[in-house]
Design a protein around this nucleic acid. Structure first.
Lengths: 257, 257
DNA sequence: CAGTGGTCTAGACCACTTT
DNA sequence: AAGTGGTCTAGACCACTGT
């Protein structure tokens, strides 16, 4: 038995994927759909709730149910490698967006010195509460927030460098780390998907059951000392994470077999 | 203005995270909650719908609203490297689960020769419709499906090898590729999160607005010829993807500056 | 301030799952 | 067969947002 609200949701989903309702278009009003399909308003709202939780539409009072643009940006891990060599004043996000014909932008929201929260202390191999610098940024597409990025640095390592200033770091953070005498040599990343907490949902303008894609990255120098810990919370409709050319060979050939 | 159903959802979420309701426990019946909070049944159901869409609970008729286990398994990219050297008869999934104290299992669902679908043909650099071998598998935790894995191989490359047989490949596919004279040398992965299609939701037993985590991997031999294309559809409550020790150094130092 | 979606209810009835 | 959640309705009223 298929519920009528699920069937209506499927119909509307198909129409959106058909480009009957392209991004920016407005679906018929709830009352109109209810009349057309012979349902109660509530039943129509359940259907729209399904689409909203899938990130396809956003219901806005007085304006209607608008179809969202879901063009994703492919963010390559190699972005960080590329940024280590002089290639202009754009950071990895702006570079990736530009390559893919998307109007991307990166805003610095806040730069603050604070005691390391437990998770950060652990990632940076510091005692809990050690001073760290937090840089909170926001990646935008067409002016709409697509990612929240928060990075932490051991305060002692970057004090007095451009990284500690509360403005955008021209040319990217990685180059600034190099100029501060810190050489990023390797990194580890963890990726998961989870429901947003309330703040994240609000900042990314997600509604009703949207999920987020999270990347936690730790960057190390040549001596395996952590120099940066970063958490990226991304709208999954706008972000694909790409790892290119990962080596599968054993680094150290097995001695006895 | 906060809706009452959202407040109730927050209360119940907190109780679940507190372990007031540990995994396996059953929440009070809808009618009981409605009475206790002075709400209509429907309002309580909205609240439970929120938790269900977050993957925290599963409402089962006649049994109640049960709290799900969300212990995730960390799947490392280096799993594939490790598997290339003889280390037992377990594949990467079983190894990862075992290391993390989780009862993991891998089932082979179907092995079939078929014409390459467009996406697969493109990934494997084949003409559309070329014969490929599809292996569909299911990764389980405690008998519950956690991942759907589908891999495609150019049929000509693996005909007559153990990979083409419709049973589990003992020791893992990668070792079988080696024995077939194909040496995996590098791989590329793409990660995204999206709502499941109906089949995926059913197979992973996701309900109401759950999302999935998708990995698409292409494996190449030393000559950069694609030898495998794999799509993994994972329940995000059970899967964290880990990349260890990614190099940040430029492989080829820039020649001209 | 008008128009759209958002919340909530009481109640009828259906459908699945376990016993 | 019984008990739990699932769907749907008609209608009242609230609240946000764009003009």
């Amino acid at each position: 038995m298929i519920a009528r609200y699920r069937e209506l949701a499927s119909d509307l989903r198909r129409a959106i994927e058909d480009d009957t309702y392209p991004p920016g278009a407005v679906l018929p009003k709830i009352t109109e759909l209810a009349k057309k399909y012979g349902m109660a308003n509530e039943t129509v709202r359940l259907a729209i709730g399904v689409l909203e939780s899938e990130g396809l539409v956003r219901a806005i009072r007085k304006r209607g149910t608008v179809v969202l643009d879901r063009t994703p940006v492919r963010v390559r891990f190699s972005r960080y490698r590329a940024v280590l060599t002089p290639n202009g004043d754009r950071g990895p996000w702006e570079t990736a967006c530009r390559e893919q014909g998307v109007n991307g932008e990166m805003q610095t929201v806040e730069v603050e010195r604070e005691p390391a929260p437990p998770e950060v202390a652990s990632a940076l191999h510091l005692a809990a509460g050690t001073a760290v610098l937090r840089r909170s940024r926001r990646a935008l597409i067409d002016g709409e927030p697509a990612q929240l990025q928060t990075a932490w640095y051991p305060y002692e390592l970057i004090r007095g460098t451009p990284i500690a200033r509360s403005s955008k770091v021209v040319g990217g953070i990685y180059r600034a780390l190099l100029q501060a005498g810190l050489t990023p040599a390797s990194a580890g990343e963890e990726i998961r998907s989870r429901p947003p907490v309330a703040d994240e949902a609000a900042e990314l303008r997600l509604r009703g059951g949207g999920w987020i894609l999270e990347v936690r990255r730790t960057t190390f120098d040549a001596a395996k000392t952590p120099i940066e810990y970063q958490v990226i919370v991304a709208d999954p409709a706008r972000t694909i994470i790409v790892y290119d050319d990962l080596p599968l060979q054993q680094e150290t050939p097995p001695a006895g077999g």
